[in-house]
Design a protein around this nucleic acid. Structure first.
Length: 569
RNA sequence: GGCGGUGUAGCUCAGUUGGUUAGAGCAGCGGAAUCAUAAUCCGCGUGUCCGGGGUUCAAGUCCCUGCACCGCCA
């Protein structure tokens, strides 16, 4: 059985993600996972919250909670929302897990042994009032260049000049506002990525089937300017993985933690370990090529902003360890989803957030629209008008109405069981042939993770059912030839079953509704079209389902457009 | 400022290594049908492929340049 390991970029813990975040990682990853499971693959689908770092500490402080407690609560919130969107993770982990702490320390120890870690001293701003070192962006002050009084320590947003925190006039802590700051000498560990440049370059060169978006970003970072830079992998924080060399203490690094970008991707592995600990499975057969992972295909999903970390930093960690870990086989990256002429914005609360989306409509509406418009080759625009017309047309009119017209016609003319009699003619054979071709196209696009094309093909498959009904016109046939009408509607009911199976990766809830209505449990992916269209035999009882997709009215659309235009709340 | 991306029908987008009359869905117009969520099906598109140069027998597709919008800068 083919085995596929799928990871979605990890959502950061400090708040609820918006649809733009989800559409570029978790949602397409889920589509792929569901599809491959339906095709009989053994799938391990992993996601987790990325919990460490300063933003989490600050968010917790704002919420008046200890950071561990805050993260635990937010993890539950994100887990519930993932469930709400039917994201079918095999495990939704936490980068703060003991498994990740152990693995992160293990990798650091290995990298050190390989001579790839160096200690370097740097001068950093320390806030006495806050009792901590401040990352550059958390030092604010007046810009020496333009006089803007809210310049950040890394850059002035007003004049865009790059700054060092010590350049700022009257610097203060962005956390507490305290001006009681001093510059202290502190030591940090650096991962000597520059030494791995040749290995990484060769590794990237081998990925000939990756999207250009992915490899071009990696190449740029490898070759531009001075090339790949060594990277600080530790921070002076409390919240994080304590710096250790594997099981050993790291002299001089007491009280420091690994930088969030060092431990976060390791959580992909650790989350699988968490899964194994919780379910009694073997996680190493997914990750260690010396322990059975040789035949695993590993696919990652992420937005384009995450590509450098997954093509360079994380591979540097893995390759540098010198151990036989699995590296990514295919990296699917996405552009951005824009919201009504601008960007989705977490800080400004602009756009639709995961919790709000589920408040106004069921998951399938969002899944369908977002996946069929996923920003694969360029940025994509979300507008309420487009969302309304597309969803009403595709889901309510084309798919939902197909199910209604078939089941209701049958109930009124033949009763609630699959009618007997009649035999296929040329029209039915032609439909089966058309569907077989379209199914092959659908599979090809789904295999290649060409999501928009997959959605378009699936929609064509739905349309084919309406075309057939329109031409066959069982309501007319019924008046003159009862047997043929029975055959036609029997085929229609079988199409409902087929559509449930094929549509499940995109709209799992609607698919389940359709299968339940057809009184079918666990339908297999079709291999022979004619056979699949005869799966429901004469006499098989079914139920007429409720309207599957209520249409979005102009009033509701206008309402939402207004509600989500500005700030959350 | 540096780097990168985008600019194709009213809208959202496809357009493989340059090659026949530039495509899809939606919207719009006309028709058929009436089983169905006023739902379906069929037919209808001469769009300076952002502008300007250039390479070529041939460019939306390559090169240069200008403009506009956008992103990233650890």
């Amino acid at each position: 059985m083919p085995r596929t390991l799928i990871t979605s970029a990890l959502p950061y813990i400090n708040g609820i993600k918006h649809l733009g975040n989800m559409v570029g990682s978790q949602l397409p990853a889920d589509l792929h996972a569901r599809y491959l499971r339906a095709r009989g693959h053994e799938v391990m689908f992993i996601c987790a919250t990325d919990e460490h770092g300063t933003p989490a500490e600050i968010a917790a402080a704002r919420a008046g909670q200890p950071v561990a407690e805050y993260c635990a609560e937010m993890w539950q919130v994100q887990k519930d929302l993932a469930d709400g969107f039917r994201l079918s993770f095999d495990h939704f982990g936490r980068s703060s897990s003991p498994q990740n702490r152990r693995l992160t320390q293990h990798f650091a120890g290995r990298l050190d042994k390989a001579g790839l870690i160096e200690e370097r001293s740097s001068r950093q701003v320390y806030s006495n009032a806050d009792g901590r070192f401040l990352p550059d962006r958390y030092v604010e002050g007046t810009c020496p260049n333009c006089g803007y009084d809210r310049a950040r320590g890394d850059q002035c947003e007003n004049c865009t000049k790059q700054l060092d925190p010590t350049d700022l006039i009257e610097p203060r802590s962005a956390i507490s506002g305290s001006t009681d700051l001093e510059v202290r000498e502190t030591k940090h560990l650096f991962l000597l990525q520059s030494r791995l440049r040749g290995d990484l370059d060769a590794w990237i060169d081998r990925q000939t089937d990756w999207p250009v978006l992915t490899t071009s970003i990696a190449k740029k970072w490898l070759h531009d300017g001075d090339g790949l830079q060594d990277r600080g992998i530790t921070r002076d924080l409390d919240w994080g993985v304590p710096v250790r060399k594997g099981d050993e203490p790291w002299p001089g690094m007491e009280g420091k933690v690994f930088y969030v970008w060092f431990d976060a991707p390791i959580e992909y592995i650790a989350a699988t370990n968490e899964w194994a600990d919780a379910n009694g499975g073997d996680w190493e057969r997914w990750w260690r090529t010396d322990k059975g992972a040789d035949d695993v295909r590993y696919v990652q999903f992420m937005g384009k902003d995450n590509v450098p970390f997954h093509t360079l930093s994380f591979p540097a960690t893995i390759l540098g360890s010198g151990e036989p870990w699995k590296t990514v086989d295919y990296l699917k990256s996405f552009n951005y989803l824009n919201y009504d002429g601008g960007q989705f914005s977490t800080s400004q609360g602009r756009g639709v957030f995961m919790d709000q989306a589920l408040e106004v409509l069921p998951a399938d509406y969002w899944r369908w629209w977002l996946l069929s418009h996923v920003p694969e080759s360029s940025d994509t625009e979300f507008t309420w008008e487009a969302f309304q017309t597309d969803v009403n047309k595709d889901l309510a009119d084309v798919l939902g109405n197909f199910v209604s017209r078939v089941t209701k016609f049958c109930r009124s003319k033949f009763g609630e069981e699959v009618p007997a009699g009649g035999a296929w003619g040329p029209r039915e054979t032609a439909l089966a042939e058309t569907l077989a071709i379209r199914l092959a196209n659908y599979e090809r696009h789904m295999d290649a993770i060409e999501i928009r094309k997959s959605a378009a093909e699936l929609r064509s498959i739905w349309v084919a059912g309406n075309e057939y009904l329109q031409e066959a016109a069982p309501w007319a046939t019924f008046k003159t030839d009862l047997e043929t009408a029975a055959m036609q509607i029997r085929l229609g009911l079988n199409l409902v079953r087929l559509y449930a199976v094929l549509s499940a990766p995109f709209v799992p809830d609607a698919a389940a509704t359709m299968l339940t209505a057809m009184r079918v449990e666990g339908a297999d992916w079709p291999t022979d079209m004619a056979e699949a269209l005869g799966a429901l035999p004469a006499g098989h009882a079914f139920d007429v389902p409720d309207v599957m997709f209520a249409k979005i009215t102009d009033e509701r659309r206008a309402d939402w457009a207004e509600r989500f235009a500005g700030t959350r709340g």
